[in-house]
């Protein structure tokens, strides 16, 4: 097990290194200038800005010193779009928000997704099955930028304890988490249903039924566990994606999370914030996938020998 974890860790580290290096190169290649705004900068001042951010050195030097600062001091550098702010500061202020929202969204996704998938599979080809799967399809198809404003207009405007947007009151998490979680819930429902249908037709379930094991015990103890394997595989990346947030959901609901920074770092050509975010996201993705692998081996003992 330890060897397995170590080898996955090294693979992940390599992938993340390549990813971040690629980001470093591409952010410099795209047209535009991180310091361009409505007012032109006088030529003699351009050098001063470059000096302040160490951009006057060769790209190779900047690249090496960035990595060495990251690895030795955990220092991701200064943001070039938010003056005087370090990338670390931005990450630490935005991550807890995204984590909270992400956990809320995942909770909603699982609470809605798994039961509806199970019920649909038990009423296979019945109207509940068709109904819930059509609903799931709709959930997958409606983009957040439609769903979010609809929730704001239909729900928030009419319910006094829900705000249209913002991150002030404890209830402010509900609508964005629902918007973000519904699409995941829809996938989870479809995957659960598929898994359940496959498992329910297996011989050992039939045997259990023949031996007179009660229906809910069969479903909860014998069928659900293997049926959830595809769901668990999907949850890793989904969790990382939900945590880094959705730019759309975060801007619609005015949430100070990572997703907003991700997009504005690209549009404002932030030379250090973007690689920092990609490194962070890459690590998160790697960890989520590693956890999924471990959970899978626990759920399915046959994988341990593989």
């Amino acid at each position: 097990m330890l060897r397995f974890i170590l080898s996955r860790f090294l693979q992940t580290a390599l992938v993340v290194f390549c990813l971040v290096s690629f980001t470093h190169v591409t952010i410099r290649m795209i047209p535009g200038n991180p310091f361009a705004d409505e007012k032109a900068m006088q030529p003699h001042l351009r050098e001063r800005v470059a000096e302040a951010f160490g951009l006057n050195e060769s790209f190779g030097n900047q690249f090496v010193s960035w990595w060495s600062n990251v690895l030795t001091k955990g220092d991701f550098g200064l943001s070039t779009s938010l003056f005087g702010r370090s990338v670390n500061e931005i990450l630490t202020s935005a991550f807890p928000v995204s984590l909270t929202l992400g956990l809320g969204a995942m909770f909603i996704a699982l609470v809605i997704g798994i039961p509806s998938g199970v019920i649909a599979s038990l009423r296979h080809n019945g109207w509940i099955d068709y109904g819930s799967m059509i609903l799931a399809m709709v959930g997958i198809c409606i983009p957040a930028f439609v769903l979010g404003p609809l929730f704001q207009l239909w729900i928030a405007r009419n319910v006094s304890w829900l705000s249209s947007a913002g991150w002030e009151r404890p209830t402010d998490i509900l609508l964005p988490a629902l918007t973000l979680g519904l699409a995941v819930a829809a996938y989870v429902a479809r995957l659960t249903r598929g898994g359940m249908l496959e498992v329910l037709s297996q011989d050992y379930i039939r045997t259990a039924r023949a031996k007179g094991v009660p229906g809910h015990t069969i479903i909860l103890r014998h069928a659900l566990r293997p049926a959830l394997l595809p769901v668990v595989t999907y949850l890793g990346p989904a969790f990382a994606a939900v945590i880094t947030g959705s730019f759309v959901v975060e801007t619609i609901f005015q949430i100070p999370g990572l997703g907003q920074h991700f997009v504005t770092a690209v549009t404002s050509k932030d030379y250090f914030l973007l690689p920092g975010l990609v490194l962070f996201y890459g690590c998160l993705m790697g960890i989520a996938n590693l956890i999924v692998d471990i959970v899978l081996t626990i759920l399915n003992p046959r994988l341990r020998e593989a």
Binding site: P149, Q152, R157, S163, S164, A165, T251, F253, Q254
Partner: peptide, 18 residues
């Protein structure tokens, strides 16, 4: 001061008394 970059969100927040 709220840094609301999406002007439609800002309008909805205003109409929702925020």
């Amino acid at each position: 001061f709220l840094p609301i970059s999406n002007s439609y969100t800002e309008t909805r927040m205003f109409l929702d008394e925020q």
